[in-house]
Design a protein around this nucleic acid. Structure first.
Lengths: 352, 352
DNA sequence: TTGTAGGCGTTATCAA
DNA sequence: TTGATAACGCCTACAA
């Protein structure tokens, strides 16, 4: 039974348009969805009515009817961590291009918020979910929700394929390896690692890359030069102090915020970078070039990270049912000043 | 007529639960929504069925039926501009606390994307919209959409109350005034303004604050020391070069990204901060303290900006129908090193 | 090519 | 306190 006529304070519905154009809702629907089966005269009448009533399809109703929302959920730890905005832009760009929208949630790497976010996304019936999980384990309840939900998940920055079938990660082994090699190339011999939290999927790879980089350079691996942080600036500071007390001459720091803390600790201790110790930092930002010294970094392709994740998700949505896919994104070493490395060696007199 | 029994691949509906618990959908709905009118025995049966079937209410259907989504739309120029994440967090926090979610869109300060974003939010039937608009004018079509939509809008960083009834902005007059005064206090006499784009709502206030600051200090206002940018780093660089060629000894730069460009330009020109020119930068970040010199800034309360905006919106949603409200957030001067100002004057021998 | 009517999963109004 | 049943706005077989 058709709805009532458009009341003054409410948005026009497809029925209002149909009545105004003296056609059926079917015809209106056909016009709105760009079907070709409509006679020009009818089409014009409908379009005129749409303009007149300022009709705008109700996406809620459409989603309910079609059983798909064309919306992708995305859970990130914290949008105010400067790492994530570009990941989100990458995801958004890829999603938009295929007619999908992004519904974003912050989890603060907190089990409960994570669970709430997931609950919300599932209740809103998103078509698939990008789950960015840097550290901490999965609450069993959350793991179960993922398993029981019938929609595809793509894990980001976490390669625990027991959680989801597909994942896209940075190649942490490679990043640590490259960083370590560069520190060695810059003449460093007592190299420390300021890593992420322990027991994380990428922690092992990073440690291994660090280890192998030292070995390949003929240096020995000393576990007491390995320090664990949690990617936050304060921790970079406190752990950085302990770390610097061991007098390393090189540090690989596994994210930018921790590097900020590390440099603050160094300053308080009267240590200069790169003179007293060199630094390679994971992940780069356009505004870093006003830092002195300019940071030598291993950049992860953040934008691409988001893009690829969406691509995997859309493949599943398009029906791909093959085995799980793990994409590793290659990091890129960007040599600047914080290691004191020069491609062209300075004259011997000026060498350190 | 009740729906079919739960098919294997689909989520359980309220009907499935009702059948499983041998009650009506009404009772299930009452339990789900925490009504008190349900007999304990019925309630238990329903809850057991919910657990068994992993039932989760479909928010699409609920929104359609209740004609409200409990979702607020938010349009920001660019999430990867480090200014906005904290604004978003503030808005999100306030929204969550009142049972609302945020649906985020990037406009890239681009008329078409802005229009698309608005269209999407309206089609998704959000209950209200936070519209962050730093610069550029409103396309007539967009202005019309806002006017015709029956939902409340709150404008952010833009006080054009012809667009929306309520708005929350930073006090740009005050920020510019304070910054200018501080530059003068630091002994600067040839002070330049690196502002935002022209013809923007806050442009005039900023210019006036700058002007009044000079006047109050007995300095004369020279229009050729006023430069216009667009809040991007590249522009800070190019405009910064022109600006520095006029040999100012102080610059008020109206956002962080432009300051980055400005400092890069200065470096290329062999100019040192704060020795050759002092700088006050609008808007502060926790990781700025590893910059040398540490930037003296006028911070805008970003988190609070988002919070207050949501508060205004929720007031409208709660039925407030009074006159429009314009909230101005007071900036906060944070004195550090980039002006060369010392609270405790150094011995005369060391003075500049 | 166009129209009719039933379904999507809720809430809400009336009866019972 | 509970239960049928009609909205909510759209899509889509199936019929005409």
């Amino acid at each position: 039974m058709p709805n009532k006529p458009a009341s003054p304070g409410k948005a026009a519905s497809i029925y209002d348009v149909a009545k105004e154009a003296r056609v059926s809702v079917f015809t209106v629907s056909a016009v709105v969805n760009g079907k070709t089966h409509v006679t020009p005269r009818f089409r014009e009448r409908v379009e005129a009515a749409i303009r007149k009533l300022h009709y705008r399809p109700n996406l809620l109703a459409r989603s309910l009817a079609k059983q798909e929302t064309h919306t992708l959920g995305m859970i990130v730890p914290d949008i105010s961590n400067p790492f994530f905005p570009m990941v989100i832009r990458g995801a958004e760009e890829a999603a938009q291009r295929h007619g999908y929208n992004l519904l974003l949630c912050n989890s603060d790497d907190n089990q409960e918020k994570e669970s709430n976010a997931l609950e919300l996304l599932l209740a809103k019936r998103v078509d698939g979910i990008l789950f960015t999980k840097v550290f901490s384990d999965l609450k069993p309840a959350v793991a179960r929700m993922i398993r029981e939900s019938k929609i595809p998940f793509v894990l980001m920055l976490n390669n625990n394929l027991k959680i989801a079938r597909d994942a896209v990660v940075a190649d942490d082994y490679r990043a640590a390896y490259e960083a370590t090699m560069h520190l060695v190339r810059s003449g460093r011999k007592r190299i420390a690692l300021l890593g992420g939290p322990p027991k994380v999927s990428n922690g092992e790879a990073r440690l291994q890359g660090f280890h192998d980089g030292l070995k390949a350079s003929g240096l020995s691996f000393d576990p007491s030069f390995v320090f664990e942080g949690d990617y936050r600036s304060e921790t970079g500071y406190t752990v950085g102090k302990r770390l610097l007390q061991r007098w390393p001459d090189g540090v690989y720091s596994a994210n930018f915020l921790m590097t900020v803390g590390l440099l603050r600790a160094a300053q308080e201790m009267g240590l200069a970078c790169p003179d007293d110790f060199g630094t390679v930092n994971l992940d780069d930002y356009p505004w870093l070039d006003i830092l002195r010294p300019k940071l030598t970094t291993v950049e992860l392709p953040k934008f691409q990270l988001g893009q690829e994740a969406v691509r995997l998700l859309l493949d599943r949505l398009a029906g791909y049912a093959g085995p799980g896919i793990l994409k590793k994104l290659l990091p890129e070493l960007r040599i600047r000043e914080s290691c004191g490395f020069q491609l062209r060696r300075p004259p011997a007199s000026a060498r350190r």
